[in-house]
Amino acid sequence: MTHTAPVHPLLEDGRALILVPAYNEEQAIGPLIDEVYSLFGKIPILIIDDGSHDSTAAIAKGRGARVMRLPHHLGLGGALQAGYRLAFELGFEFVVRIDGDGQHDPAFVTAMLDAVSRPGVQMAIGSRFLHTGGGYTSVSRGLGIRLFRTFLRPILGKPVLDPTSGYVAVNREALEVFSRSFPLEYPEIEALVVLRRRAFQFVEVPVSIRPRLAGRSTITALKSVYYIVHVMLGVLVNILIFDRRRWR
């Protein structure tokens, strides 16, 4: 199971950052950081601790990662935006987001950076459905994804296979947009719509999604309906009036 990923030049010169949102991930965060360092060496990795009640931040610091702690819980979108803001202010040119639960194999960071550093591409989405054997997902998530694909197709003007993926890479143009406006809850799909409305291009990159190392997904079957309604509403609002206050 050991990967031998060649270190991407963008990671080596510190132009790219790996951004990891984490909320109560004390079991998974340590192994994930170790895995990143063993793959790529000591590259920039920033953990955003969203007011975890466990020792996520302490463990991440102990493994040598940089940790930004929010003063209180903001939710995934608010936490990610804080990370994008910091990355933008620190001058990073590329940011790859991977989840703190270990579901995203960091070996694919290289392919994600390759994709997003191509001219005319502002965002890369790690897609579990392009990767043979990497399509781990729950039944309810699978249904939701199919629904979103159909819904998003006309809005995005092209198909997207894995719109809920949190494995996302952006270049500096998209980073600037995200640092200014980013959806607060369940941000992935809305963020995609935001970028497309600015005529930004995205590509999908095959990645393998693994089962969680520990803990449970925050998207339970019960929350799925709320999730779907919430996201569709967000997308519609975005189409009607984009860049309004709600986005901050």
């Binding site: 510190g14 920039p44 955003i48 702690r69 929010l70 903001l74 608010g78 910091l86 001058g91 607060l184």
Partner: peptide, 29 residues
């Protein structure tokens, strides 16, 4: 909603400032 927006922006700014204070030696990551 306005309060929440302001609160989120403030929390993000606090986190960013705190991070930059703690990591002031290197400036970068």
């Amino acid at each position: 909603s306005h309060l929440r927006d302001a609160n989120i922006a403030l929390a993000q700014r606090v986190a960013i400032l705190e991070f930059r204070l703690e990591n002031v030696e290197d400036g970068r990551l």
